[in-house]
Design a protein around this nucleic acid. Sequence first.
DNA 1: CATGAATGAGAGTTCATTCAT
DNA 2: CATGAATGAACTCTCATTCAT
Lengths: 199, 199, 199, 199
Amino acid sequence: MRSESSSFLGRARRDQIVRATIELLADVGYGATSLSAIAEKIGASKGVVSYHFAGKDELLTQVVNSVLQDAAAFMAPRVQTASGAPAKLRAYVQANLQFLGEHRDDIRALTAILTSLPPGSDGLPVYAAAGRDAVEALATLLRTGQDTGEFRDFTPSVVARSVRAAIDAVSELLNVEPDLDVSAYARELLALFEPGVLA
Amino acid sequence: MRSESSSFLGRARRDQIVRATIELLADVGYGATSLSAIAEKIGASKGVVSYHFAGKDELLTQVVNSVLQDAAAFMAPRVQTASGAPAKLRAYVQANLQFLGEHRDDIRALTAILTSLPPGSDGLPVYAAAGRDAVEALATLLRTGQDTGEFRDFTPSVVARSVRAAIDAVSELLNVEPDLDVSAYARELLALFEPGVLA
Amino acid sequence: MRSESSSFLGRARRDQIVRATIELLADVGYGATSLSAIAEKIGASKGVVSYHFAGKDELLTQVVNSVLQDAAAFMAPRVQTASGAPAKLRAYVQANLQFLGEHRDDIRALTAILTSLPPGSDGLPVYAAAGRDAVEALATLLRTGQDTGEFRDFTPSVVARSVRAAIDAVSELLNVEPDLDVSAYARELLALFEPGVLA
Amino acid sequence: MRSESSSFLGRARRDQIVRATIELLADVGYGATSLSAIAEKIGASKGVVSYHFAGKDELLTQVVNSVLQDAAAFMAPRVQTASGAPAKLRAYVQANLQFLGEHRDDIRALTAILTSLPPGSDGLPVYAAAGRDAVEALATLLRTGQDTGEFRDFTPSVVARSVRAAIDAVSELLNVEPDLDVSAYARELLALFEPGVLA
DNA sequence: CATGAATGAGAGTTCATTCAT
DNA sequence: CATGAATGAACTCTCATTCAT
């Protein structure tokens, strides 16, 4: 099925497989997410997955892209709507946590894949790129605020990395406390970071 | 595995195996750290590993414990020596980053294991316990500072989790920038967090 | 597969499939000549091949027959035209080499199939029949020459098999030396065999 | 088992596996010679084969080398003992046919492998090398005879290829006529070729 | 006629584990 | 203590075939 024909049925099957893969990754982890397990979950034979995806790699890539696109589609408008660097930062944190709360399986699946991929040939983790992109985007936001004098003088990459890490940590917390009030958590995070960031 | 024999030789062999496992985990990742690879690395047969450890699980548990104990042994005196909550927090962050810088393989191995272990039977990640302990210890420190009026009124677990996450993020950064000045990074982290934490 | 329909379109499709199969066999070998590869080569779906041929076996049989018929159609008039056993033998060798030179893919495909088919249920190679027929035809020619006194007294089947083998060996040589002068090679072959054959 | 320790047991097992593989190749052909079939034949699990050989490739390479070495060991002394090019040629043909008669399975296995391997990346069959070596060795013998004036003036490579092909053809014949008198056949071959070769 | 979807068997390979020596 | 041998399960992937549309 190399055709991008996007025949309705083919598309639906692929989506179904991606969804099943996400749920498995979230539920049983990377190691237990085999093609057999995926096939069983959708009530089909093993060959179906191989038919719709060139291989496990393509499937996992699809999962990663799917989640990243969803996240970007959710985040972008909320951050861009806000005016001024401080407001954008608030929107960034709040939107992030809201997305985390609403897409737990997706995030767990993403994490499972990214942390389980073997180190690349250069010795660096494969996911370094994805992570670095996210940090870089936030750093740019921070740098903009520094240029306008809204933010203090700090090293943007350090703060960006720390804020992102603090946000990502919520994902794990959600596994333990499913009823967490993510909105309140976002306010607490901002209360923690804003004093050190705002001018 | 008459493990209680604790003969000198047996102890040495176990340590050697644990070290080899740590290096492999750091170098080639969880997936490529097979018993054969470990055996090959120490120039022995596969059976040796199975002989000294009940199974792969016990070996990995040993690796985790080993690293956690080293970290605790390094951290504890530095934090306890400092007097006053703010000083203890500074010591905590600085000692943490110093340890990260000096034990990169250990940390990478630890991360590889903890992020790759499948979710436990209760659906929660196995490493939740270890992580929770670390956060809880820091939260206690923060709570103490709040009791003495040295720290503001925030939710200790939220701040503790965020600080830990910011610290842990440095581990990945070290893979990309091996020459990172961890001491300077620690100062930047404190400059970021202290305004939001100190009373 | 309503194969007796022999509609123009159906006939054309079958021929197209057979041609594609021959090219694949010649280019990538027996093992890589899958139904998918054939379908891809003609820009159609896998089902097409299955529709026009009862199975892979029938397709390969068709390929073999097709090539054998072409060869027979090329050889027969050239040999029959020559008068006298020695002239027929010369025509046989020359026509054979000429055909080899002009139908390399066909020959390679034929060889790929015949050498890759599993031994038949009787333990004998499936292609034994085809090979035996070719040897037998040449042996008959030789026997005729012996009867007329033009050829020496030798065992016809031995000489026939040897001549055929020497001819077939040129097929492999053509893969290595595509510019081989087959006509000159034919003369050398005759110079080698005629002293032992002619009376 | 990468060790060349040549422990008696390991060596025996490897030999046993190679023998089983040869018999399978001879009996059921290349396509049906799977690792499972091999394992079943020696009454062991599939893993055993993988344990003793790095992969199927290494096993098949071993088979090829094993047969080629046996053949060389058989042929070399017989040819070298003969004095004079004509005698060497006679010894070559006779020894070859004798070996063919005594090692049918080996030859069938060798043929199965060499004809079934896919074309190399250069488009040429992998076995071209092995075949070319054999032809080249015989061509050298012929050339020597020409230099001494014992042989006529012909193109050595053409004659060498033809003689080799005539010899190889006997291998197939042996499948059909197991009781063939190879010694008599050798005499007939020599009677066919010598008139065209001897000065 | 043709397609895309699905199946199920079988391939080679890897791995943790067990055990006799 | 240590080894080499063996197992058996699981894995990804490929393929010929079938079938509803």
